[in-house]
Design a protein around this nucleic acid. Structure first.
Lengths: 191, 191
DNA sequence: GCAACGCGATACAGATCTGTATCGTCGCGC
DNA sequence: GCGCGACGATACAGATCTGTATCGCGTTGC
């Protein structure tokens, strides 16, 4: 609604992701958003409220990007399920890669009761459900829900490890593991 | 060597893990370690130095715990390789579970050049190598190094997700994925 | 018995953080 | 044309953080 509010959200989102939540103060956010500090506090009562709002605005686009990667993979259901893993390597090696904002927030805001962590939990549940829906479309998958749990696990593991090991080899390992767990292509011929 | 230094290290390790690195100040560490602030700064020139020292003292015991879990699994090489994944569920559901200190530090200390992140990288490389060594002992594993990459990925993914999803089901998914990727038991009979 | 050193306690400097208070101004609706 | 509300700027309060400076005590080696 408000242009100032949008500028604050976009600036905070960028700075939080690039430098961390605790490392960026509200003064800096207001200055870089070219907004008075009181304007910021009129829209977001506390910094925690701003953090929650930032994560909530990031959830939609993040899910859309996952869906777009699957959609872009074409008609084959197995290729669609594995498409997110194929895009990990270019993502990890892209400039400014900083991991998953929801995971970062959860681990940085150490208190388990922090409201931002509830947003992260919802985001992770939605991601897992997207994998489950895609897995149900693949022939020969015995337990799509169990497979979705495993793929979501690999997905987040790759994002976490990409910041502690060689990102390209982590991405390749994730794709290999996801491919192996999904099973061979077109086993329907067997039946 | 110094008793005061040991108390500082132990106290910092506990507080950093429980409440986060940035959330705990040096005044609090000195007070809870029953040590003067200047004593702390005589042993560790800066807080970053203390953080690095804490992580370095945690590396040895962490590797030892992994090795002990494998050792405790008995003689079967495949069971030894999978033993770390079998212990995830009790670990995740134990009181005070706070994830992996090295991963937490890496994501909390957002700057990629922070010296603590180098310690975390070494720790993760050592963990992967432990998986690789165990994988080489298992019959029927085609590429132990590739399998080690995948298992390390799942291990860290489980630790990360355990803080954002139901820990017990995350642990079960990790064990299932690791088991599936390692392949069937005793395929040597085939050849 | 004494000198030296490690240690604890405390005060301080300087920076930074969240959140509030105040004031002037601009723009839009009525 | 006018009043009201949103906005920008700035100063401030109070807390907290890292790192330094200083002083006095106790223990230990010689």
């Amino acid at each position: 609604m408000s242009a100032a509010r949008e500028r604050v959200l976009a600036t905070a989102s960028k700075l939080f992701h690039r430098e961390g939540i605790r490392a960026v103060g509200v003064d800096r956010i207001a200055a870089e958003a070219e907004v008075g500090k009181m304007t910021l506090y009129r829209h977001f009562a506390t910094k925690d409220d701003l953090v929650v709002a930032v994560l909530e605005t990031r959830d939609g686009p993040a899910q859309a990007a996952l869906a777009a990667a699957m959609e872009h993979a074409g008609d084959d259901a197995r290729a669609r399920l594995l498409a997110p893993f194929a895009m990990l390597e270019p993502w990890f090696t892209s400039r400014g890669f900083r991991g998953c904002p929801f995971m970062n927030a959860s681990l940085e805001l150490h208190d388990p009761g922090h409201p931002a962590r509830a947003v992260a939990r919802r985001h992770k549940a939605a991601t897992r459900d997207a994998f489950a829906a895609a897995a149900r479309a693949v022939d020969g998958v015995g337990d799509p829900d169990a497979l979705a749990d495993q793929l979501a696990l690999i997905f987040d593991g790759a994002i976490a490890q990409a910041q502690m090991r060689d990102p390209a080899s982590v991405a390749r390992a994730a794709l290999a593991a996801a491919t192996a767990l999904t099973g061979p292509a077109r086993p329907a011929r067997e039946r």
